[in-house]
């Protein structure tokens, strides 16, 4: 028995000593090699973002997003300073999948867009590439899509991805210090710096499956201490479709912006352009070229009317708050 215990002890000691020695050797080797391994993976990432940030010096590990068509993003720095983010996006358009790399500057402006996919339908892609050349050298804006120039759907898809990247960058600026509520309201108030926790509201109208809308929560949004408006979480149910939105109303009760959080799938995988929302309704009311109550002239008037009803209810709600800033309802 004693012999066995002695054997066991010596076994453990010897193996333990060898394992410790092994650990030391491996640890030293790892310390020596890790800068080289890091350099290699950095070289790989630099090459990935080279198309949009050719002067990048340091690229972070990719951060997964996987929503709104955005796959992941890299933080890009040069000279020790953050210069922007490189977003990789992928979205189906027609029969192709459009893969892009979008470079967003640290000031949330578009730096450059590169198409990274090898498409099966080159006619659309070529038209899109020509248009992108204009976007990249500043002669065209990314949300200005000429009609009838070919590849319109592809260009729209790219434009949507660029917008999604800009929105994401703005919403996530400031890292972990940004609360979920602030991130949400930044979709409609991009320069917001404060948001409250949100108050429940119960506003709705219309008939479900026909033209139903509802507003469920209201956030008070501030910029540098001053209330600039209110962000509402709402949803619509026109016909058999569903969509949830964030509606931004300025403090004076006028419509600011609307952001589609989710839209049910129709025969498009895209976000902003399923066939049951009039093609340009949302972008146009957001850019101010159309009034929300101008619902005629599109593919789906009922949907536009439902959205408009939701917006009008939100405007009325803001006005009923009396317009006093800093009031928590």
């Amino acid at each position: 028995m004693k012999e066995n215990v002695k054997k066991g002890l010596i076994t453990t000691l010897t193996l333990g000593a060898i394992v410790l020695g092994a650990g030391a050797i491996i640890g030293v080797t790892s310390a020596i090699t890790s800068p080289f391994v890091y350099a290699h993976s950095l070289a790989g990432r630099l090459e990935a973002v080279n198309g949009v940030f050719p002067n990048a010096e340091d690229v972070s590990e990719p951060e997964e997003i996987n929503s709104n068509g955005l796959v992941e993003r890299y933080e890009v720095s040069a000279g020790g300073e953050l210069i922007g983010w490189a977003y990789s996006g992928s979205q189906k358009s027609q029969t192709d999948t459009v893969d892009v790399m979008v470079g967003i500057n640290a000031d949330f402006t578009l730096e450059r867009v590169e198409i990274t996919s090898s498409s099966t339908n080159s006619a659309y892609m070529d038209a899109a590439r020509d248009w992108l050349a204009g976007v990249n050298n500043g002669t065209t804006s990314y949300d200005d899509i000429p009609v009838g120039a070919g590849g319109t759907k592809t260009k729209q898809t790219i434009s949507i991805l660029v917008q999604a990247a800009i929105d994401h960058a703005k919403a996530n600026a400031g890292g972990d210090a940004v609360s979920a509520e602030l991130r949400l309201v930044r979709n409609v108030f991009p320069d917001a710096t404060e948001s409250d926790q949100g108050t429940a509201v119960e506003l709705s109208g219309g008939t479900p499956q026909a033209n139903y809308w509802e507003l469920t929560k209201r956030y008070e949004v501030g910029e540098n201490g001053e209330t600039v408006g209110y962000a509402y979480e709402g949803s619509i149910n026109p016909m058999s479709q569903q969509g949830s939105f964030v509606v931004g109303i300025k403090a004076d009760g006028t419509f600011s912006r609307i952001y589609a959080v989710t839209l049910s799938l129709d025969d498009h995988d895209g976000l902003y352009n399923p066939s049951w929302i009039p093609g340009t309704y949302i972008p146009e009311i957001n850019s101010g070229t159309r009034n929300p109550d101008d619902c005629i002239g599109g593919e789906a008037t009922i949907t536009a009317e439902t959205i408009n009803a939701m917006i009008e209810a939100a405007e009325a709600d803001v006005l009923s708050l009396g317009g006093s800033s800093g009031e928590a309802a």
């Binding site: 076994t11 394992v19 092994a22 090699t33 080289f36």
Partner: peptide, 25 residues
């Protein structure tokens, strides 16, 4: 009686070292 396990660990150590060096260079 500790021979085989010890040899195996020693071999595994050098394999890991070579692996790390290969990954880097």
């Amino acid at each position: 009686y500790v021979r085989i396990p010890s040899y195996i660990v020693i071999i595994a150590t050098f394999v890991t070292v070579v692996k790390l060096l290969a990954e880097a260079f």
